[in-house]
Nucleic acid binder design. Structure first.
Length: 303
RNA sequence: GGUGCCAUAGCUCAGUUGGUAGAGCAACGGACUGAAAAUCCGUGUGUCCGUGGUUCAACUCCACGUGGCACCA
């Protein structure tokens, strides 16, 4: 039996993960690790549905607003930092709760990400320029020449993936595929994965209402404050990019709000696609905390 | 009251010299190893307003009806 347990609360945006995590954390008198790729940025608060002051009262939440949108951040950095924090927390607690909707961040903690060198900004820029001038077909051919293994398995319609592989080759002289071992890293603690879901129509209602509430709380002003930096990766985020479009006069405010709702619904669907694939996730409705607690306790006894 | 225009997917609309229909958005499914709230792939879901008529065949042409819009009274 492994005495240290990480309870993971996953699911689509707006389903009620934070409430459930807080409830579980209170029950186990422990703390919460956030696994949401946008809540880590301190400049974005309204649009990322941060845990409210009430939800944060008395329960320590980690990885909320600990970075700036100007920082370079990614799933691998998150893996390293989250493991450090978890090691500390497990000295005081047998159970820690993790909550969030970024499947890749959760997997980074559970299974690990292969060690790949960090690409510097200059290389990133050169590859971007190559894509601009040579086009998708151009960078495909470059990839075929330098990394036929990855070329054979990558989604050739996805420029982001091809560029990443070219960056690594340019940076290190080694093919990207040679870094991908797929090795699952051993952790010193066990996992209990909970998935929250509800009928789609209900989820859509909650999303729509939450977006309206964000607008009322001043999301447009927050977007205006960040407008000058709108091209940084962190601000390529639902709720902000659409309002940048409105500020640029590309659409009305009403249209931008409809876009935010639509893009949030699509994001929720992609999250479900990710988590459904993970057979270790046990699914519940958010309104059955007792059933969840029973399941968690059972799993903890087993592991 | 009269005249004209319109009625096709959840929404906005296109279309067939008559052979039961297709775009965008939405929706739905999927992929995912350092941007992941990102990026990419796939799927058309339909009493073509209703009832008659012409025709081998009507979503398309004709008549009437219903609803909407515009103009004239």
């Amino acid at each position: 039996m492994n005495t240290k347990q990480l309870i993971i609360v996953a699911g689509p945006t707006a389903v009620g993960k934070t409430d459930m995590a807080v409830w579980l954390a209170k029950h186990f008198s422990t703390e919460i690790i956030n696994a949401d790729s946008r809540q880590v940025y301190r400049e974005m608060t309204i649009g990322t549905a941060l845990p409210s002051p009430e939800q944060q009262a008395g329960i320590r939440h980690h990885f909320i607003g600990h970075r700036s949108v100007y920082d370079y951040y990614n799933a691998s950095l998150y893996e390293t930092e989250a493991l450090e924090v978890l090691n500390g927390l497990f000295e005081k607690h047998d159970v820690v709760v993790m909550a969030g909707g970024s499947g890749m961040y959760i997997d980074a903690v559970c299974r690990g990400i292969d060690a790949i060198p960090t690409v510097d900004a200059g290389v990133r820029e050169r590859i971007r320029d190559a894509f601009m001038s040579a086009g998708l077909e151009g960078i495909r051919q470059k990839l075929r020449a330098c990394d036929p293994v990855y070329y054979a398995r990558v989604d050739l319609n996805n420029p982001q993936r091809i560029r990443k592989a070219l960056e690594i080759y340019e940076m290190t002289g080694r093919p990207y595929s040679s870094y991908l071992t797929g090795e699952i890293k051993k952790r010193s603690f066990s996992f209990v994965k909970i998935g929250l879901d509800m009928p789609r129509e209900e989820l859509h209602d909650r999303i729509n209402q939450r977006v309206d509430a964000m607008i009322e709380r001043g999301l447009l002003q927050e977007a205006r404050n960040l407008y000058a930096s709108r091209h940084v990766n962190a601000l390529n985020t639902v709720g902000y990019k659409e309002l940048f479009g409105y500020i640029d006069n590309l659409c009305t405010l009403e249209e931008a709000v409809l876009q935010i709702k639509g893009h949030t619904r699509q994001y929720a669907r992609r999250q479900l696609t990710w988590f459904r694939k993970d057979s270790s996730v046990q699914w519940f409705r958010p309104d059955e905390p007792e059933a969840i607690l029973n399941y968690v306790c059972l799993k903890i006894k087993e592991q």
